[in-house]
Simulated scan of single mutants.
Amino acid sequence: MENLTYNSPVLQLEGLVVSELYIYPTFLSLLFAYVLIVISNTAIILLITMERRLHEPMYLLFCNLPFNDVFGNSVVVPRLMVDMLKPASERYISFRDCITQAFGYHMFSVASNCILMVMAYDRYVAICNPLHYTTIMTTKMVAKLTVSAWAATLLLVCILLSFTLRLNRCGTFITNPFCDNASLYKLSCEGSFISNVYGLVYTAVIAGCSLTTIGITYSKIAIVCLSSQNKSLNSKALKTCSTHLTVFMIMWSCGCSMFILHRFSGVAEYRKAAALIFHIVPGILNPLIYALQCTEIRHVILKLLNIKKLVP
């Protein structure tokens, strides 16, 4: 039973609940996944940065995605692994560190949507307005889109957490593997209509903008492809858009599962698993999908591996 302490500076994390028999196998699995995420995503960023032929708007905008995957997993996974090796009664975290982790977690989740939205705009311009692509998607425009995505993310997350921080806390037990706004809000001993409303608006804005942007851009891309007899255009659209849509669907399905399960008290373990999958699975699959699907990235990788016969 949790202690009722008014605005305690120290909180207790539930962490990942694993039986003693599976602690070390789970720890090693998480360690392997985290190392794989860091190495593969960092490698993609370095590859795009150092290879001149990849200095195109599509790849430069994509760099934000592996950076965000490394950032988001670094905020959650190392702390989760350390807590696994501690007894459940000793998994303490300071309120300041908990807020920092919640900030990082929400930055990761919102940025994932914002980055995929600006990438969808890039694909729309490339396929629906190819003659003006180079004049629209300049280096300056890429910089503006990148800054806008991160600025919007920062603003939304800061407002979300500011409403929770102003509430007094009576609880000290975080019923989650890591800190997030929903878990912190549950510690409050006072209701807040404004916080509830903003939380719903926050979710609706992110989900609505993301789905609307992807839906509109890809509807227009589909119309152009269906009305065009250019097989080269259709092939290019299919390759680049299928990659982007695959990444979007993976992120969206993991995020929706976690959001829905957060609303039901009887499925806590499934919610925790979904929260972990939301971080790890996209971080592992994103670089793999782009490396295999994008011809230019695949050619550069094969070149670096000294494979002379390149796959066309």
Rank of each mutant, 00 (worst) to 15 (best):
F62Y: 15
N3Q: 15
M141W: 13
N168F: 00
V18L: 05
K272D: 15
S219G: 15
F278S: 12
A120C: 08
Y6W: 11
V157E: 00
Q12V: 07
T246R: 00
P287M: 00
A143Q: 14
T134M: 06
T49W: 12
I301V: 09
Y218D: 12
T175Q: 13
L167R: 10
V197L: 06
N113V: 04
K140R: 14
N286V: 15
M81G: 03
T172M: 08
C98W: 12
G191A: 03
C256K: 07
H55W: 13
L302W: 10
M119H: 02
A88I: 11
I44W: 04
V125S: 01
P177K: 05
F163Y: 11
S188W: 04
F71P: 11
V157Q: 00
Q229R: 12
L161P: 08
I297H: 05
L80C: 10
I277Q: 02
N176G: 05
V18R: 00
I284Q: 00
S19M: 03
V247D: 04
D69W: 14
L155Y: 09
V157M: 04
I23N: 05
G255L: 11
G266V: 02
I159M: 05
C225P: 01
F173K: 03
R53S: 14
V281I: 07
V17W: 11
A291F: 12
A102N: 01
W150G: 02
K308S: 13
K220E: 11
N7A: 05
A237K: 00
L156F: 11
P177A: 01
Q101T: 06
F178T: 03
N129M: 13
A43S: 09
L310R: 02
L65A: 07
L54Q: 01
N176T: 01
G191P: 09
N168L: 04
F71Y: 15
N168Q: 10
C189E: 10
T295D: 07
T139C: 09
A274M: 10
K220H: 14
I280M: 09
S257R: 02
V118P: 03
M107L: 13
V75W: 08
F108K: 01
L165V: 08
F248A: 04
S232N: 07
T240D: 14
T49M: 13
E296R: 14
V77P: 00
T26C: 11
E269I: 04
C189G: 07
V125Y: 06
F193V: 15
S219I: 05
Y105G: 04
I174D: 06
H262N: 09
D97Q: 10
E269G: 02
A88L: 13
L154A: 15
R53D: 09
L154I: 15
S148V: 10
A274W: 05
Y92F: 15
P287A: 00
M258L: 06
C294D: 14
C254Y: 07
L238E: 08
Y218C: 09
L31E: 07
T243D: 05
I214K: 03
A204L: 15
